[in-house]
Write a protein that binds this DNA or RNA. Sequence first.
DNA 1: AAGACGAAAGTGGTTGA
DNA 2: TCAACAACTTTCGTCTT
Length: 320
Amino acid sequence: MPTKTTYRTKAFRPSDIYADEVKECPDCKCTERNVDYQRAEISCKKCGLVLDEEIIDLGPEWRAFDHEQKNKRTRTGPPSTYMISDKGLTTTIDWKNKDIYGNPISEDNKALMYRLRKLNKRSRISGRGQRSLALGLSELHRQSSRLGILGPVREDAARIYRIAARNNLIRGRSVESMVAASIYAACRRANIPRTLDEMAEMSMVPKKQIGKNYRFLSRELNLKLKPTSPADYIPRFATKLGLSGEVQSKAIDITHRASQKGFNTGKGPTGLAAAALYIASLLLGERKTQKDVANVAGVTEVTIRNRYKELAELDIGVSL
DNA sequence: AAGACGAAAGTGGTTGA
DNA sequence: TCAACAACTTTCGTCTT
């Protein structure tokens, strides 16, 4: 990814970003590019060679049909927020009338300090709603891009965040953690759940806090989310492990049969998904170690073993 | 030598008084 | 608010391939 941030226009287009650093395609030496946002890939227009993948979409959040919408819907400016916001490093002026050495401030300066405090406070508060929302949305954009979340799911996350902001649910919580919680909720709603570990890793927010905020959001906004099904995790885990589609469907089959026997109650869905994948990989001869599966699923080998033992006792055709 | 297995102790979150 | 509790993790020793 290019790291240059020389463009400062309000609504830049992704194609502009790459315009000044198009390199020749090593295959056919042409310089024309296709940018595919669905797959997040840049490929050569002539020969189709993929030149860059997992690009970050820095474009506007929504489509706009007239000038007013364009102003409203475009997120505010370049990825770095140095120009706009204080990046959370707000300056406050102490209420004590002491200087940094602890000496009292002179009577002359007291009036000055009073005025400064007042102005500082006022400038910080004014327009906070608008500004923090813009900040939140750009943070949301950054995080969802890193997770590879696009389209409707991202829009849903943005909607959740906006509603939360409107209902004053962000106050007292960090923007990053609430954004992460919104994305987490949107993913679950779309049945493509991310684990809390994944969310924590990319948002730099402790897992605990994301979970807490997520529960808070779902309670306050009545999101009515069902517990995640282990089957939802399987395709993603399987892909990461490089397992075939057959193993995937076998694993999904196992989780379905297990849930028919009322097995999935109270257990973590990722553990069960991992165990099902492990078993399926053994049955179909694409052996993966417990350790590999455990790493991808974010559980330990011990958990896989336990689930695996329990599944074997369940009489659903899983026996070794 | 790596992977699988299991026991035991520890951890963080939920529940019910 | 606190203790009990279930699920899961960490750690470690032993067995298997």
